[in-house]
Computed example of a mutant assay.
Amino acid sequence: MIHPSIKHRLPISLLLFCILSNIISCTETNGATAYTLEKNTTHSSPTYKVVKIKDGDTFVVLKDNTELTVRFEHIDCPEKNQPFGTKAKQFVSDQCFGKNITLQHHNKFDRNKRLIAEVLLADGRNLNKLLVENGLAWHFKKYSGDTAYAQLERMARNKKLGLWSEKDPVAPWLWRKK
Rank of each mutant, 00 (worst) to 15 (best):
H8I: 00
H8F: 07
H8A: 02
L10Y: 06
P11H: 08
P11T: 00
P11Y: 02
I12K: 07
L14D: 08
L14Q: 03
L16P: 00
L16C: 00
F17P: 00
F17D: 07
C18Q: 03
I19W: 00
I19T: 03
I19V: 13
I23C: 04
I24K: 01
S25Q: 06
T27P: 00
T27N: 07
E28Y: 02
T29Q: 12
T29K: 13
T33E: 02
T36S: 08
L37K: 07
E38F: 00
N40D: 12
T42L: 04
T42P: 00
Y48W: 14
K49S: 05
K49Q: 15
K49I: 15
V51N: 09
K52W: 03
K54R: 08
D55V: 06
D57C: 12
V60M: 10
K63P: 01
D64F: 01
T66Y: 10
E67W: 06
E67P: 04
L68F: 02
L68H: 02
L68I: 10
R71I: 09
F72N: 13
D76H: 03
C77S: 15
C77Q: 10
P83V: 08
T86W: 06
T86K: 15
A88T: 13
K89W: 01
Q90D: 15
C96S: 06
C96R: 04
G98L: 12
G98V: 09
I101S: 03
T102N: 11
T102V: 12
N107G: 04
K108I: 10
F109G: 04
D110E: 15
D110F: 15
R111N: 10
K113V: 05
K113N: 14
R114K: 09
I116T: 01
I116L: 15
I116P: 03
A117D: 10
E118T: 07
A122M: 02
D123Q: 05
D123S: 02
D123F: 06
G124Q: 09
R125S: 05
N128K: 09
N128G: 10
K129D: 00
L130N: 02
L130W: 04
G135V: 08
G135R: 06
L136R: 03
L136T: 04
A137N: 11
A137M: 12
H139K: 05
K142F: 05
Y143N: 10
Y143G: 06
G145V: 03
G145R: 09
A148D: 11
Y149V: 02
A150T: 13
R154G: 04
M155V: 07
M155K: 13
M155S: 10
N158Y: 07
N158M: 08
N158A: 15
K159R: 11
L161V: 02
L161C: 01
G162M: 10
L163T: 02
L163F: 01
L163S: 03
W164C: 05
W164H: 09
E166A: 12
V170D: 13
A171L: 05
A171R: 09
P172G: 12
W173S: 12
L174F: 12
R176V: 14
R176H: 13
R176F: 13
